[in-house]
């Protein structure tokens, strides 16, 4: 469990990082928190010849709101998101999701940019980004481009990031005042990757009917999946138990889950239904500004 030989670079600006990327291309890997990369390097499943550490680059770890868009710098640690006063007020799902990532030591190091670049389908940030239609800011020597999360995360551990590019920020819309939300998951132990996770936001109109619904499920396919036909059909519906059950049933049929040693495909389908119902109930309780 010792990594293969590599050269370690610590650029202090994006420009310097781009220059290194330009020089080494596919032979280089960006390292931020290192919570996924270092273990696979120690197992020699990854053997980059150059490691470009971006931690010394300033300006990549802010969390700020501008014109109804919340921008989270790629180097923001999970722990910073978990404890951000701005996010607790404007986008409380994110601190809630951050709390479930690993353990404190992991959250102190791991970054949102690293997690999304890694495109682990079970990661909390993938689920959040899909739920909220986050935009990914990608920068290279050629300039800055924005990518929709559904274009950015393509499959298991596969993201749309060229060898010369760095993920620099993630942009989320905040939730509306009174909008209900919930993040539910099941894992074998506290701190494990979720077997199945469900996140939702619900807006009700003054009559109590659904005005807007987001519903996203992880662990059922190669990326998190938005259950768009439930979202569309929900508009104007009264959110009663019958509706919750029908939504849960749809959720159980989503994707093509695989069996592994921690959960069979059948179990994942059952949990998809169970967690969807739980999440919808919890979000409805929060609607209208309730806790």
């Amino acid at each position: 469990m010792k990594p293969a030989k590599f050269t370690y670079h610590t650029p202090d600006s994006l420009e310097a990082a781009f220059q290194l990327l330009g020089e080494y291309g596919d032979e280089a890997k960006i390292i931020a928190g290192g919570q996924s990369l270092i273990p696979v390097m120690n197992l020699r499943l990854a053997q980059p010849e150059h490691l470009i550490d971006i931690n010394a680059i300033n300006g990549l770890s802010q969390i700020r709101e501008e014109g109804d868009i919340i921008t989270i710098g790629a180097l923001s640690r999970h722990r910073e998101i978990e404890t951000s006063a701005l996010l607790k007020e404007r986008l409380p799902l994110l601190p809630e999701a951050a709390m479930r990532i690993g353990h404190l030591a992991i959250r102190n190091r791991g970054t949102i940019g690293g997690s999304l670049s890694n495109a682990d389908p079970a990661a909390e940030w993938s689920l959040m980004a899909f739920l909220m239609d986050a935009d990914i800011e990608i920068t290279s020597a050629r300039g800055t481009r924005m990518a929709d999360i559904t274009d950015f995360i393509q499959s298991v551990y596969t993201s749309d990031l060229s060898a010369d590019e760095i993920l620099t920020a993630v942009k989320f819309p905040p939730i509306a005042p009174g909008e209900g939300w919930a993040v539910c998951r099941i894992s074998r132990r506290a701190g494990d990757f979720a077997i199945v996770s469900v996140a939702t936001t619900i807006c009700l109109d003054t009559s109590g009917a659904i005005e807007n619904l987001r519903l996203c499920i992880g662990g059922m396919d190669v990326t998190p999946v938005r259950i768009s036909h439930v979202e569309h059909a929900a508009v104007g519906q009264m959110p009663n138990e019958a509706w919750i059950k029908s939504a849960a049933e749809v959720a159980s049929g989503i994707g093509s889950p695989e069996s592994d040693m921690h959960a069979s495909a059948e179990y994942r389908r059952e949990m998809a239904a169970h967690l969807t119902a739980e999440a919808l109930r919890e979000a409805l309780k929060r609607c209208g500004g309730g806790a």
């Binding site: 273990p39 353990h103 074998r188 132990r189 506290a190 701190g191 494990d192 990757f193 040693m261 921690h262």
Partner: peptide, 14 residues
């Protein structure tokens, strides 16, 4: 089960 991500031991919370 070649890593502690797959060979599970409980944490204090479990």
């Amino acid at each position: 089960t070649g890593s502690l991500a797959d060979y599970l031991i409980p944490t204090a919370a479990d």
